[in-house]
């Protein structure tokens, strides 16, 4: 007999599903992935593959044997974590450490809290920060893009690190820029021809992905744009006050994985606020903390810490940043 199906309304469902959203994030990451394969070659490919595969495998194993639940690896979220973790690693990173980083990302960053949706911190960032603190040398020795490799240099520092080092030695920005080993131009950075983590180098490819995410309504503009604006305003003010000590905002926007972090890591659904108002507060916080760490702290790069810090603030933001009730009288 033909049994009718009964359910409460609504009886139709929109186009979104967790799977589709995650798939769109992966698609949005593809341009940057291609650019990194082009610049960093086989090293980038191996790191990405190892990170993605180990994230998926760890998620499956933990869900199946430790938590004894039905594995949900088919929602692609582990792939996204793996990709973003890999994007934050240098292309010559030891593979065994990639595996360890993935284990930390999935195990400590995600599964201990109950899996997708319950983790307070961005899993990929947990993995990255763990590696950054545990193995700082490997994490900050970046190979140069293939076509920049010369006889005496196969690795180099990121532009941010060069600036930081120079400032520490008492040089002014202009002096640092005139040094021989400073070959960075904004054009290189747009295209991706600079040293750095394998996924963060190409601004254009990352922005292409950002546009895709916006068109597909995967994310809203609120978080990335507020981060960019805050960074511009804060670092711009500093630059205007003393151009010799503080570098210009464009530099900040194009280096240190700013775009990667703002578009793909800060916008992680689980660890970002629920309301648009909250997102703006969250983005502003990330922007301020990043620039504060970069200019006043000892680390050259501060975005990861800023995002993790603001992740911790999200429950608080959610509590106080509620949407306005229709017809509410204040």
């Amino acid at each position: 007999m033909n049994k009718l199906i009964i359910s409460p309304s609504p009886h139709i469902h929109g186009e979104f599903s967790t799977k589709r959203l995650m798939r769109d994030v992966i698609i949005a990451l593809l341009p940057a992935l291609c650019v990194s394969f082009y610049f960093f070659g086989l090293g980038a490919m191996t790191v990405v593959c190892v990170a993605v595969i180990s994230c998926v495998v760890f998620e499956y194993l933990i869900q199946k044997f430790l938590l004894k639940t039905t594995p949900t690896v088919n929602d692609y979220s582990a792939i996204v974590t793996g990709l973003i973790l890999a994007f934050n690693l240098p292309s010559n990173f030891p593979l065994w450490l990639v595996v360890v980083g993935s284990l930390i990302a999935i195990g400590v960053g995600k599964m201990v809290f109950g899996g997708l949706g319950n983790n307070p911190f961005n899993p990929a960032l947990v993995g990255r920060v763990f590696l950054l603190i545990a193995r700082p040398v490997e994490m900050t020795t970046w190979p140069l893009p293939i076509n920049m490799i010369t006889a005496d240099a196969t690795t180099g520092a990121t532009p941010l690190a060069i600036i930081k080092e120079g400032l520490k030695n008492g040089l002014t920005i202009d002096q640092i820029k005139s040094q021989a080993d400073y070959t960075f131009t904004y054009l290189d950075s747009l295209w991706g021809q600079i040293g750095g983590s394998l996924g963060e180098v190409s601004a254009i490819a990352l922005l292409l992905g950002f546009a895709y995410l916006l068109v597909r309504k995967v994310i809203t503009w609120h978080i990335p744009i507020t981060i960019f604006l805050t960074v511009t305003v804060f670092s711009g003010t500093l630059h205007l006050v003393n151009p010799n000590q503080f570098i210009d905002p464009v530099f900040h926007l194009l280096t240190g994985g700013m775009i990667l972090g703002a578009v793909y890591m800060a916008t992680d659904y689980v660890t970002s606020p629920m309301t648009h108002k909250g997102m703006i507060v969250y983005g502003t916080g990330i922007g301020l903390i990043t620039i504060a760490i970069r200019t006043f702290g000892s680390y050259p790069e501060g975005l990861s810490f800023a995002i993790l810090f603001m992740n911790a603030m999200v429950p608080l933001i959610n509590k106080y940043m509620k949407p306005k009730l229709f017809g509410e009288i204040k």
Binding site: M1, K3, L4, I5, I6, S7, P8
Partner: peptide
């Protein structure tokens, strides 16, 4: 015998509020 299939939230209270039962 079950004559229809309930596809809403797995809760008797939700089901009872929706209709007479399966």
């Amino acid at each position: 015998p079950r004559v229809n299939e309930f596809d809403g939230a797995a809760s008797c209270a939700v089901m009872a509020a929706t209709y007479s039962g399966d």
